[in-house]
Design a binder for these strands. Structure first.
Lengths: 211, 211
DNA sequence: GTTAGCATGTAAGGAGTTACATGATTTT
DNA sequence: AAAATCATGTAACTCCTTACATGCTAAC
């Protein structure tokens, strides 16, 4: 989870740890937050594995041997790894969180992969919807109102997600027919954008005293 | 998480581990599944802590020293612990999952606690909604369409939840005025119900090869 | 000059999963 | 008699959090 998110962000632009965490808790933060206690060890591990490297070109003068900012960039292996993870089709690749992260970096994937992921996710969500429908019908009048409400609200949520996915899929098909065969269909973001603002929000959703 | 769910189920009826897990993955399974690898160790820990005990009245004849079913029931301490957890008001008690579990056992709480929990959750959800709105407005046209879609869908989800919570809260207020001051407002489930069917669904949402 | 935010890390631990191991009972 | 499902458990591991520790830099 953290790994793919880091790869996705660094694939757009080199960054240091602190900034990564800020961006992470913006985009993904809507449904996921990470702490430094997992971020830095993960960066170290990824560096050891050769997925990322220090970006010497942005090297702040390390004046006096001080510990300065460490800006990371993707290596070639890192870029390959990112594409592999994005294209992953194993069961479990369509979990709520895994799907969310992949969607957040969708514009960095080709149209074929996008379509495959969206359809895989839709299949998953539809199965869940059917199971929930069946259960709710079977058990409705035997359950207390709170359990019914919980299940009803849950069911409506997956129904909404299924519709939403279908719209995204339709829109992918339209783009294809309209002749953008396999490159990113996303609106490119203007170049003069200050990156800092892109994702960063008000912070993590739950704890306000992360560190 | 697992602890409160176990307490909630055992508070309704004594049960053995295997059945607990089945029921767990029905009600809660909509948003959460547990494996035996966490269930049994947790049961042992809870027994050591005196929260649950073996229900001797249902003792299957352990013929020949065989390992038979172990039916657990709540102790007095377990019942107290359950009420404490349900009434918990600390930050973090209103997380997605924690709230979900509490709601699933709502009919076992008094009206005052129910209202407090619902309002706490609503506050949390509304804060999140506002943060998401602000971010989406600020960043809308600079983001690629997938990120925008992800955030838009997320925003609509929390908007829906906020409305849903408000309806539940209104309904609690109505019940109060209608003179059911503090006992469970839930429709009591008929006595002849086979418990087994209450929650149990088709199984866990993701992996099909749990064990 | 002090508070807030930038920046990087470590140590301990929590809450679960996966994979394995074992055997009884029920259904086909 | 084979297959499914019931039933209980352990060992290793994953992935993350919390709390702590340290110091720099900008703003008020």
């Amino acid at each position: 989870m953290l790994e793919i998110a880091i790869l996705g962000l660094l694939n757009e632009q080199p960054m240091h740890g602190y900034e990564l965490r800020k961006q992470l808790n913006g985009t993904l933060g809507t449904f996921r937050a990470f702490s430094y206690g997992s971020l830095y060890p993960t960066l170290r591990r990824m560096k050891e594995q050769g997925l990322i490297a220090e970006d010497e070109s942005v090297l702040e003068p390390p004046l006096g041997g001080r510990r300065g900012k460490v800006v990371y960039k993707l290596t070639v292996e890192g870029k390959e790894r990112f594409q592999t993870l994005l294209a992953d089709d194993s069961p479990g690749a369509y979990d709520d969180e895994r799907f969310g992260v992949r969607l957040a970096f969708f514009s960095q994937t080709d149209a074929t992969t996008r379509l495959r992921i969206l359809e895989g996710r839709r299949r998953r969500v539809e199965e869940r919807r059917e199971r929930m429908r069946t259960r709710l019908e079977r058990t409705r009048e035997r359950l207390d109102r709170y359990t019914v409400e919980l299940q009803r609200h849950g069911l409506e949520s997956v129904e909404r997600e299924a519709r939403w996915l279908s719209e995204l899929i339709d829109s992918e098909h339209r783009d294809r027919r309209a002749g953008m065969p396999d490159e990113a269909a996303s609106t490119e973001r203007p170049a003069e954008l200050e990156q800092d603002d892109r994702f960063s929000g008000t912070g993590p959703q739950d704890s306000d005293t992360y560190q």
